[in-house]
Simulated assay, not measured.
Amino acid sequence: MVRHFSTIISAEHPTGPQFDADPVALMARADKLIPGKAPAIVAMKQMMVLLLNAQAPVLVHGPSGAGKELVAQALHDMSRRTGDMVAVNCAAIPADLLEGELFGAERGAYTGADSARAGLIEQAQGGTLFLDEIGDLPLQMQAKLLRVLETRSMRRLGGRSMIDLDIAVVAATHRDLAAMVKDGTFREDLYFRLSVFPLSVPPLTERLSDLPMLLDHLMHAEAKGRHDIAQPVFEASALRVLSAHDWPGNIRELKTLVQRACLLFPGRKVGAREVNESLMRFSYPEPGQTDWPAAPLPDMVAQDAPNALGEVFRHGSGKIDLRGYLRDIEVVMISAALDAQSNCVSRAADVLGLRRTTLIEKMRKHGLAR
């Protein structure tokens, strides 16, 4: 079952900071905050720029792990708000404590309230309040949140005076809010108040051309503050295997893979075998496992391919690792066949025109799991 998440951004803050009206400057900032040049991610960033300048509520859709918090942080940074982004997980706080955490309390409001305390909403003054898992917000709290959005003000528990707010509100959930409205578990008025404009975050499978850029970005982030750690080098064969993966965990899954690579292969080359044996399923690499020679990325198959290769031999180094090149193609084709046949070795062997025992031997040779 495909999971659905929504990130809701309320950017209506007439007393807040003025946005940069230059879309070119805003797009450049979006590119810096969210790496990627794939058409799907570029379209998302262009929509972010448009909606940011409009200062209107935004509803963001996308699969789990695609980067909902990154989008929220980018929108906050692009808004140039002077305050911080304050995050709260609505599903992690017990319902009987949630109101106090969000709204704060005056001294004596309840047993143990020895002093006045600002809640998370108030702490986000001048900045952004990020409400994660808003689909788990109790109905009573949904009514109170709607009141905050409508009046742009709040009152602490036990307080008498209203506090005017200058905040942007970002909320996220893996739930289908529209379906929850029909079920009566999410308020319709709050849903429509928060879903003025749609914004889609694409899954990683729709931006596989960004893999080299994303790997570089994640490795730099992993090595931040650790200058003594050399970064691994992902070879062409590794990129081909990564491109054939279906990435159910999206960017979060890719980040996990990069963390493993930085731990297991610092300053070393990572090929198809390393990806399959040590990164896709965590296991410590055997000595000498990374000695395979690198193979070039295969270009688009064309009728003049022989002539193109002839140019490489004549004007290039004069050497091409044919065995490595063919090995990498074999790894990708076997992986694709297994995936298409639900990891059934017999059916995969049939579509590849191989005997089952031959395919098993090749899988063992390349470190491919069933």
Rank of each mutant, 00 (worst) to 15 (best):
P266T: 09
R260K: 09
W247Y: 13
F265A: 03
G267K: 07
A272M: 01
N250K: 11
L263N: 08
R268G: 06
V233C: 09
R252G: 15
R252N: 13
L263T: 14
D228A: 15
N250P: 09
R260T: 07
R268Q: 13
T256Q: 15
R260V: 11
V275Y: 00
W247N: 10
T256W: 06
L242S: 03
K269E: 06
R252D: 15
R252C: 12
K269P: 06
G267C: 11
R226E: 14
R260I: 10
E274L: 08
V233R: 14
R252L: 14
G271A: 06
N250C: 13
F234L: 13
A236W: 01
V270H: 04
R273E: 09
P248L: 10
V275F: 01
A230G: 05
D246F: 01
S237A: 13
C262K: 05
V275N: 00
A238T: 06
D246R: 05
V270G: 03
A230Y: 07
V258T: 10
D246T: 08
V258A: 09
E274C: 01
F265Y: 14
G249E: 15
T256R: 14
T256M: 14
R273P: 00
A261C: 11
R240P: 00
H245F: 07
P248V: 11
A261T: 07
R260Y: 04
E253H: 12
C262W: 03
L257G: 05
L257E: 01
N250I: 09
K269M: 09
R260N: 13
W247C: 13
I251C: 12
F234T: 14
P248W: 05
A244H: 07
Q259R: 14
S237H: 08
Q259H: 12
S237W: 07
K255H: 13
E274K: 04
L257A: 13
A238Q: 03
A261Y: 07
L264F: 12
R268W: 01
P248R: 11
A238D: 05
E235P: 00
L254H: 07
